[in-house]
Simulated scan of single mutants.
Amino acid sequence: MSKKKFSFKRRIRSFGFAFRGIGKLIKEEHNAWIHCFAALCVIVAGFCFGLSAMEWVAIVFAIGSVLAAEAFNTAIEALCDFASPAYQEAIKHTKDLAAGAVLIVAIAAAVVGLLIFIPKIMALC
């Protein structure tokens, strides 16, 4: 446990590290590009359909959850690759689980989107 005293300067610096991580995720990870494109489409659709505040809450949490899961997955993969550059069945298992977690969150986010948008689309017909 760290014995360092609280410092606003260090807290602000830690936000810089976090924003750098988000930037690297969006800039370098192809799957994150797909998630961001889907998020942009959902946000545009949300404005077009005039979502309620609670619908926006669900959408924001869904988008945030998917992007956070992708960031965790990317971090786990990078750590695994660093720790064991050679093929290891345990590392493969770990990376598969992390990728599966992203898929679970993405499916849940898609269900949230369908629950919100299908009734609105059906109302147009």
Rank of each mutant, 00 (worst) to 15 (best):
I59D: 07
K120P: 00
E29D: 05
F61R: 02
F82Q: 14
S52K: 09
I12A: 09
S84K: 09
I107N: 03
G16Q: 00
K24G: 06
A71K: 10
I63W: 11
A45L: 07
A69K: 02
F19W: 13
W33L: 00
S52R: 10
A99Y: 01
Q88E: 14
K9Y: 01
S14I: 04
A62V: 09
E55Y: 01
K4Y: 10
E70I: 11
T94A: 11
A98I: 05
K4H: 15
L115N: 07
F37Y: 12
I107D: 00
V105H: 02
K9T: 11
L114K: 09
F19H: 05
I121R: 11
F17K: 05
L103D: 07
D96V: 01
L124E: 01
P119Q: 04
L124D: 00
Y87I: 01
S7R: 02
H93Q: 12
S7N: 03
F49A: 13
A108R: 11
K3L: 15
T74A: 12
L25Q: 08
F82G: 12
L97Q: 14
A69T: 01
Q88P: 01
A78W: 11
A68C: 12
H35F: 14
G21N: 06
A38C: 12
R10D: 14
C48N: 01
L115D: 08
E89M: 11
T74K: 13
A45M: 09
V102D: 03
P119T: 14
A53R: 06
M1V: 08
C80V: 05
I26D: 07
S14F: 10
K95Y: 08
S65R: 10
V105N: 04
K24L: 09
E77I: 02
F82N: 10
A68P: 13
I76A: 12
I22E: 03
S7D: 10
R10F: 00
I76H: 14
E29G: 00
K9P: 04
N73L: 03
I118L: 14
M54C: 08
C80E: 13
A58S: 15
Y87G: 04
W56Q: 02
C125W: 15
L97G: 05
L79K: 05
F117Y: 05
R20P: 03
S2H: 09
S2V: 11
F19I: 03
C41A: 09
I59R: 10
A123N: 14
S14N: 06
A83K: 06
F8G: 11
A83Y: 09
F15N: 08
V105R: 03
K27V: 07
E29Y: 03
I22S: 00
K92C: 10
E55T: 02
I118Q: 15
F15M: 12
A123C: 10
K3D: 15
S2N: 14
F15T: 14
S52T: 13
L79A: 08
E28F: 15
C48K: 11
R13P: 04
A71Q: 08
Y87Q: 13
N73I: 04
F117T: 01
C41Q: 06
I12Y: 01
K92M: 15
H35G: 12
T94C: 15
K5H: 13
C36F: 06
F8R: 08
C41H: 02
A68Y: 12
V60P: 01
C80I: 02
